[in-house]
């Protein structure tokens, strides 16, 4: 199975380790992984800030770059970026610089191949246990775009359930945004501060040593606030967790584990 990694600008600029862990996990599970070279960013930083005209070239570049490499699936390390690329066909309907709908047609093909990392492992590869081990107490932060725009509420929890030694405690107020919101965190920093401070308090209250998420943006925001406040926590992307102390003999398929409960939270 040929898999292209949708790197995201976050991974390129701040969090390379997430990409390395993703590649190692996916290769271990039998995928042939490649990284399309010309890809950059999904366009959310400008699009969501209202710079829509400036965003069309960003989206076009992304489409060209991902379409340049033959693959069965495209897997992304961020729920938010996955969600907007799935929305490309809708967004490009308003694109005056794509009058013949070429990009729109490509976007539809790409959107159908596009998966967020955790949902790809569970729903496409059918893997329930990646063989990882992490003996600690953790809590999971659910990102808004992954939950509400991509509609994926479950696979991270299900995969974490099968990590040996890991206890996951429920994060109170899990439905509330951490205050990242892309450029919102910069432009409306006073409001963002109130939101991320509330999230830090909730994470602290769980007593967890590790905060896990599937969106590096949220992790950078919450982690950055923890650090500013001088409070201890370990920040981990799910890919890092699933690449810890792996014993390949423990890898199990979805069909080999009991059917998990539906989303633990609404």
């Amino acid at each position: 199975m040929k898999v292209s990694i949708f790197t995201t600008c976050m991974m390129d600029l701040i969090s390379p380790q997430v990409g390395k862990d993703m590649v190692e996990v996916l290769e271990r599970l039998g995928c042939t992984v490649d990284v399309p070279e010309k890809q950059i960013c999904c366009g959310q930083p400008t699009f969501n800030s209202g710079y829509v005209e400036a965003s069309w070239p960003v989206m076009h570049n992304q489409i060209d770059a991902l379409a340049a490499i033959d693959c069965d699936y495209i897997v992304c390390s961020a729920g938010s970026c996955t969600a907007i690329m799935k929305e490309y066909p809708t967004l490009l309907a308003d694109d005056p610089t794509d009058p013949n709908g070429q990009y729109m047609a490509q976007a539809k093909i790409l959107a159908a191949k596009m998966y967020e990392f955790s949902q790809f492992i569970w729903r496409v590869l059918g893997i329930a246990d990646c063989g990882a081990e992490l003996t600690t107490v953790a809590t999971y932060h659910r990102s808004c775009h992954m939950t509400r725009l991509l509609g994926e509420r479950e696979t991270p929890f299900w995969l974490l359930e099968n990590v040996k030694g890991l206890e996951v405690r429920q994060l109170a107020g899990i439905q509330y945004c951490c205050g990242f919101g892309g450029t919102f965190s910069v432009k409306e920093s006073a409001i963002s501060e109130l939101m991320v401070t509330a999230k830090v308090s909730h994470a602290e209250a769980t007593g967890a040593a590790v905060l896990i998420s599937c969106d590096p943006g949220c992790l950078m925001n919450i982690g950055g606030r923890f650090n500013r406040l001088g409070k201890p926590i370990k920040i981990m992307h799910l890919a890092e967790v699933l690449n810890q102390n792996v014993d390949e003999r423990r890898i199990r398929k979805v069909s080999e584990v009991p059917t998990p409960a539906p989303a633990p939270f609404p």
């Binding site: 790197t7 991974m11 390129d12 600029l13 701040i14 390379p16 997430v18 990409g19 390395k20 990284v35 070279e37 965190s185 910069v186 432009k187 920093s189 963002s192 501060e193 991320v196 950078m220 925001n221 982690g223 950055g224 606030r225 650090n227 500013r228």
Partner: peptide, 19 residues
């Protein structure tokens, strides 16, 4: 705007980049 509120990890050196 970011660093008014929280710390920002310094970007990695090019040699440490994912690509």
């Amino acid at each position: 705007g970011w660093t008014d509120v929280r710390d920002l990890p310094a970007p990695p050196k090019h040699q440490d980049d994912f690509r």
